[in-house]
Design a protein around this nucleic acid. Structure first.
Length: 462
RNA sequence: GGCGGCAUAGCCAAGUGGUAAGGCAGAGGUCUGCAAAACCUCCAUUCCCCAGUUCGAAUCUGGGUGCCGCCUCCA
């Protein structure tokens, strides 16, 4: 079955084919670890997780590389301003290295809670400084660079197809630029490959280079690391939609200038999450919701957020509010209860091939998760027997990643709950309804839910 | 100022020429001692507005209006 993916490069849905099937190289731009990830960031990682699972489902062997940006990402515009890591270090009174380590761990915890599969390779910008320097040297030897007072820059006018991803008119861009100009740059779009440490300032993160002590520009790390780990498997490169115009455009320019070969055949970008009636969520706006603040602290299962993102196609901005979180929580619980009910009625049997095909076609159509979720509901409401439904929904969960098959595992109830349950059974036998209801409330208060089904009393942790 | 995107029920939304998916919320019902859970039924003659193309448009074209993003760190 053909897999259609939307390619930002051509602005079209195209049939995906890796260059060395079944091997497939996937590079996803990772976090800059100077703060917690907000749920908007996480939306993109969930989209990339679905992509990876769909690739795998289609039989591809995915080598997935994700970088950790732990140096060089500046707060200001166009290569001005402070380094985010150094700034975070000042803010929290820790070293830049500690900051990076702390927020890297926090990030990994978040993606685990969202059932996002870990990449095959994690790579840190600071671990590949040597490779980045080599790449800059290559660019230098080919005449793409120039050095000014604060760093080594890439001359975008020397690279012919600079705007092939952004499709922007550079002339028009020049006119409208409202930026704090770096007047020494030859062209407004030129970007730093290597930044010099400011004189008289001891940076926490700095390295020797042929051009002087300093640190790499933000874009060079992704070029260096993707080439280093993926070699000739430059198949898909992902990130947020905001990366199209600057970050990815610059990556392509410097990479193709260095190698003379195309840099990644597919570029895929996830749309933003926006606060309903408000603005995009951004760390720099200080309005960000984290998995912890918006879900865990409110007693909402983090997987409800994963479920919530399935309601909106990844290329469309997602409207978010507290209502969305509640709706997703209810929807996820309902789905789990549907599966639990099926498990009471039978064992997983053979997968229904018709539904499997429908689901497969849907996800292969540029990861249409909203429709895929509709297929799930159609399956559950169909007149197939419980065994077929169970097997098929578990099959779908390979993509969904909602831990539906985990529900089959026996969960041992804590002793105090077991006692209350037994007491309630006795009370019901004695038709002591008042006591029975009281015990039911007690059990609920302890985080468990009593369901009186035809098969008897059932207690679940919702 | 330039470039791009979006506007579908109370909320989140799919659908891009053939007569409106799905989820949440809501209403009614089955079950139940009651409730919850589950299940069944109902819930947009209509897709921001105006004009046009077409046998036929939410889907195409033109013009409005509103919102969002990028051009500056950002997923």
């Amino acid at each position: 079955m053909e897999l259609f993916l939307y390619n930002s490069l051509t602005r079209k849905k195209e049939v995906f084919k890796p260059s060395r099937p079944p091997e497939t190289g996937l590079y996803t731009c990772g976090p800059t670890v100077y703060n917690y990830a907000h749920i908007g960031n996480l939306r993109t990682y969930i989209f990339e997780d679905i992509l990876k699972r769909v690739l795998t489902y289609n039989g591809y062997k995915v080598k997935h590389v994700m970088n950790i940006t732990d140096v060089g990402h500046l707060t200001g515009d166009r290569d001005m301003g402070e380094d985010k890591l150094e700034k975070g270090a000042q803010r929290e009174g820790k070293s830049a290295w500690d900051i990076a380590g702390y927020y890297t761990q926090a990030f990994k915890k978040d993606i685990n809670r969202l059932n996002i599969l870990e990449p095959s390779i994690w790579c840190k910008a600071t671990d590949t400084i040597g490779e980045q320097i080599e790449l800059i040297q290559t660019l230098e030897s080919k005449g793409y660079t120039y050095t000014i007072n604060d760093g080594v820059y890439f001359d975008t006018s020397r690279f012919e197809n600079y705007a092939k991803l952004s499709h922007q008119d550079l002339e028009a861009l020049q006119e409208g630029a409202r930026v704090e100009k770096n007047l020494s740059k030859r062209n407004p779009a030129d970007f730093a490959l290597w930044k010099f440490s400011p004189s008289g300032v001891q940076r926490q993160m700095e390295w020797q280079s042929p051009w002087g002590v300093g640190f790499p520009g933000w874009h060079i790390e992704c070029s260096a690391m993707s080439m280093m780990y993926l070699n000739d498997m430059l198949d898909i490169h992902c990130g947020g939609t905001d990366h199209i115009d600057v970050h990815h455009t610059n990556e392509i320019a410097q990479s193709e200038a260095a190698t003379g070969k195309p840099f990644f055949s597919f570029w895929m970008h996830g749309a933003f999450l926006i606060i309903t009636g408000g603005k995009k969520m951004a760390k720099s706006e200080g309005n960000f919701l984290t998995l912890e603040s918006a879900f865990l602290n409110k007693g909402i299962d983090p997987l409800a957020y994963r479920y919530a993102t399935f309601q909106t196609h990844y290329r469309k901005p997602m409207e978010y509010s507290g209502k969305v979180a509640t709706a997703a929580q209810n929807g996820l619980f309902h789905l789990r209860n549907q599966v639990r009910t099926l498990m009471d009625a039978g064992e997983p049997a053979a997968i229904d091939s018709k539904f499997q095909k429908r689901f497969h076609e849907t996800i292969n159509n540029d990861l249409n998760m909203p429709r895929a979720m509709a297929v799930v509901q159609d399956l559950l409401k169909s007149n197939l027997n419980a065994g077929a439904k169970l097997a098929t929904v578990f099959e779908f969960d390979r993509i969904l990643g909602l831990d539906l098959s985990e529900l089959a595992k026996k969960q041992d109830l804590p002793e105090d709950i077991q006692k209350l349950v037994q007491a309630r059974k006795d009370a019901r036998k004695a038709k002591n309804w008042a006591l029975s209801d009281e015990l039911r409330d007690k059990i609920l208060a302890l985080g468990y839910q009593v369901q009186d089904t035809a098969q008897g009393m059932k207690v679940i942790k919702p």
